[in-house]
Amino acid sequence: MRTQQSGRVKDHALSLVFAAAFILTLIGQSIAGLFDHNEDQLTHGGPVSSWWEFVTSSEFVVDVAENWQSEYLQFFLFILATVWLVQRGSPESKKTGDEGVGSDEDQLIGEHARDDSPAWAKVRGFRLWLFSNSLLIMMGTIFVLSWFVQGLAGTTVTNSENALHGEPPISFGEYLLSADFWNRTLQNWQSELLAVGSMVAYSIFLRQRGSAESKPVGVPHRLSAIESD
């Protein structure tokens, strides 16, 4: 039994490690953010907040949501772009000539499906279309929802600040057109796009032995990991 449990943990180690790291950093952000918030409140003679009050506040939610939406936008764009675009020599790309959605035979769908293929890969119609695009749909949905939450929370934060300065509140639509919203949004988008672009380009010429995100060390720069098989 212990061996089986150890095997299951090993099989899912990558997901488990990143899930744990995510939770730890989110907790760390909430604690650091609470201290920063309360320090600012004391400076201005305002009341301090408990940890729970802070993590359920719009101030914390807007910071979390703006990071999530940029991350999922990154994945959404990269998944979509790699269907049609290639980068010669990058393990993050298909090889030149393989642009597009691929044939049914290549994708193992319909009559070309294997016995152990997912059930919706063996059918036709809407279910096959939905399953064939499910990863892009999921990433896009999370992006839109987190962007929407960022807008709502940002509106609340802005109106709280306006009230302190005797200014009138603004609507959700007005906040979406504001400089604050787009400053928060674009500074995250550019960093994510830089990271993805750098990964694609650096992986052509640089290696990390043993990583699934790298070509084997001895593979020529001009070849992708797929071409080297």
Rank of each mutant, 00 (worst) to 15 (best):
L16P: 01
G102T: 05
Q41Y: 09
D11P: 01
K122A: 10
A121C: 07
S117P: 06
Q69S: 11
E59K: 11
V219Q: 02
V9W: 06
T43D: 09
I31Q: 05
F126C: 02
S203V: 02
L164G: 07
S191T: 05
I79H: 02
L130P: 00
G45A: 11
E66I: 13
H112A: 02
F172Q: 03
R8C: 05
G125L: 09
T25C: 12
R8K: 09
F60H: 01
N38Y: 06
V61P: 00
V9N: 00
L108C: 07
A212M: 07
S93N: 02
W84F: 15
L14A: 13
P168Y: 07
A212G: 12
F75P: 00
L26N: 03
S58V: 06
Q107P: 00
V217S: 03
K122M: 13
P91W: 03
L14T: 14
K94T: 05
M139F: 15
I137S: 08
L42F: 05
S134R: 01
V17W: 07
Q187W: 14
R222V: 11
F148T: 03
D180M: 06
R124G: 14
N188T: 12
L152H: 02
S191P: 04
S146M: 09
N162H: 15
W68S: 04
E53M: 06
I23Q: 04
L206F: 15
S211G: 04
A21F: 10
Q41M: 15
I109Y: 01
A121W: 03
T155I: 10
H37W: 11
G151C: 05
G125I: 11
A19P: 00
L223K: 05
E92L: 14
P118M: 07
W52Y: 10
I137K: 05
D104I: 07
F131K: 02
L177Y: 06
L24S: 09
T158E: 03
L177D: 07
S132Y: 01
K215D: 01
